[in-house]
Simulated assay, not measured.
Amino acid sequence: MALEFSLDPPVGPVLRDGILGLWTDVSNADGAVGFVPPVSREDVRPELVRHLVAMAEGRARLLVGRDADGEVAAAAFLTYNAHRLMRHWIWLYTVMVHPRHQGRGYGRQLLAAAADAARGMGGVDAIRLTCRSGAGLERFYASCGYKEVGRVPDAIRVSDGDYRDDITMLLPLV
């Protein structure tokens, strides 16, 4: 079953709460989306607000995947570069598929929808993202066409004594 994706859907309380719940659930399932479990919705809310402000200011766009029940099942943020020499590529941030939907190909669908969205943005030649080592994410992204282009060893401290690499990956669109 495929998710139904929408780019830049109107953000009201229902969508906002759906993304907040998604982000919290992904984080608590040990998803590498900026937090270490356990987290509450209130822990995640300020980061979501920062993303929503970036959207309101035209610096970011939201891609949402809904399941057959219309619930938010996946999401990602596409962020423009402010630097005039780097406007030909975008960042893909906070790539999330709800834990109850993982293993169904929804992550691949989300990345394909993000690539389609980026191609439609005009002048975008590539997508960059970063991921945390230790969970096999770099292998997943590579299987979706992304190439590892950089790695900073031990850049992310998950907890005392648990350091992970920060991996930069690139998907050429042309």
Rank of each mutant, 00 (worst) to 15 (best):
residue 1 M to T: 13
residue 1 M to Y: 05
residue 1 M to S: 14
residue 3 L to C: 07
residue 4 E to Y: 02
residue 4 E to G: 12
residue 5 F to M: 08
residue 6 S to M: 10
residue 7 L to R: 12
residue 10 P to H: 09
residue 12 G to L: 05
residue 12 G to S: 09
residue 12 G to R: 11
residue 15 L to E: 12
residue 16 R to P: 00
residue 17 D to N: 15
residue 17 D to G: 14
residue 17 D to P: 00
residue 19 I to Q: 02
residue 19 I to F: 06
residue 20 L to I: 03
residue 21 G to V: 00
residue 22 L to V: 06
residue 22 L to T: 03
residue 24 T to I: 03
residue 26 V to D: 11
residue 26 V to G: 07
residue 27 S to C: 09
residue 28 N to I: 02
residue 33 V to Q: 10
residue 33 V to D: 11
residue 33 V to R: 07
residue 34 G to Q: 10
residue 37 P to S: 14
residue 37 P to D: 11
residue 37 P to F: 08
residue 40 S to I: 01
residue 43 D to T: 15
residue 44 V to S: 07
residue 46 P to A: 09
residue 48 L to S: 08
residue 49 V to Q: 14
residue 49 V to L: 13
residue 49 V to F: 01
residue 55 M to Q: 13
residue 57 E to K: 12
residue 58 G to Q: 05
residue 58 G to T: 02
residue 58 G to W: 01
residue 61 R to I: 00
residue 61 R to H: 15
residue 62 L to H: 04
residue 63 L to G: 04
residue 63 L to I: 08
residue 65 G to C: 07
residue 65 G to P: 02
residue 66 R to V: 12
residue 67 D to L: 02
residue 71 E to R: 15
residue 72 V to A: 10
residue 74 A to L: 04
residue 75 A to T: 11
residue 77 F to S: 00
residue 77 F to D: 02
residue 80 Y to D: 12
residue 80 Y to S: 12
residue 81 N to L: 02
residue 81 N to F: 01
residue 82 A to R: 13
residue 85 L to A: 15
residue 85 L to I: 06
residue 88 H to Q: 11
residue 88 H to C: 03
residue 90 I to D: 02
residue 91 W to L: 10
residue 92 L to Q: 08
residue 93 Y to C: 05
residue 95 V to G: 10
residue 95 V to Y: 09
residue 95 V to M: 06
residue 96 M to D: 08
residue 97 V to N: 09
residue 98 H to M: 01
residue 99 P to A: 07
residue 102 Q to G: 02
residue 102 Q to E: 13
residue 102 Q to I: 01
residue 104 R to S: 05
residue 104 R to W: 00
residue 105 G to Y: 01
residue 106 Y to Q: 08
residue 107 G to C: 04
residue 108 R to F: 00
residue 108 R to P: 01
residue 110 L to D: 05
residue 110 L to F: 07
residue 111 L to I: 13
residue 112 A to N: 11
residue 113 A to P: 01
residue 113 A to H: 06
residue 114 A to H: 02
residue 114 A to G: 01
residue 114 A to T: 06
residue 115 A to F: 12
residue 117 A to W: 03
residue 117 A to C: 05
residue 119 R to T: 03
residue 119 R to K: 15
residue 122 G to S: 07
residue 123 G to F: 11
residue 123 G to T: 09
residue 123 G to N: 10
residue 124 V to L: 09
residue 124 V to I: 15
residue 128 R to M: 13
residue 128 R to N: 12
residue 130 T to K: 13
residue 131 C to N: 02
residue 131 C to R: 00
residue 131 C to P: 03
residue 131 C to L: 01
residue 131 C to S: 10
residue 132 R to E: 15
residue 133 S to Y: 11
residue 138 E to N: 04
residue 138 E to A: 12
residue 139 R to Q: 11
residue 139 R to S: 12
residue 140 F to I: 09
residue 142 A to C: 03
residue 142 A to R: 13
residue 146 Y to E: 05
residue 146 Y to I: 01
residue 146 Y to M: 14
residue 148 E to N: 03
residue 149 V to H: 12
residue 150 G to W: 03
residue 150 G to Y: 01
residue 151 R to Q: 10
residue 157 R to E: 15
residue 159 S to H: 09
residue 162 D to F: 00
residue 162 D to I: 11
residue 164 R to F: 07
residue 164 R to I: 03
residue 167 I to V: 15
residue 167 I to R: 05
residue 169 M to G: 10
residue 170 L to F: 13
residue 170 L to P: 00
residue 170 L to G: 00
residue 170 L to Q: 13
residue 171 L to F: 06
residue 172 P to K: 06
residue 173 L to V: 05
residue 173 L to W: 07
residue 173 L to C: 04
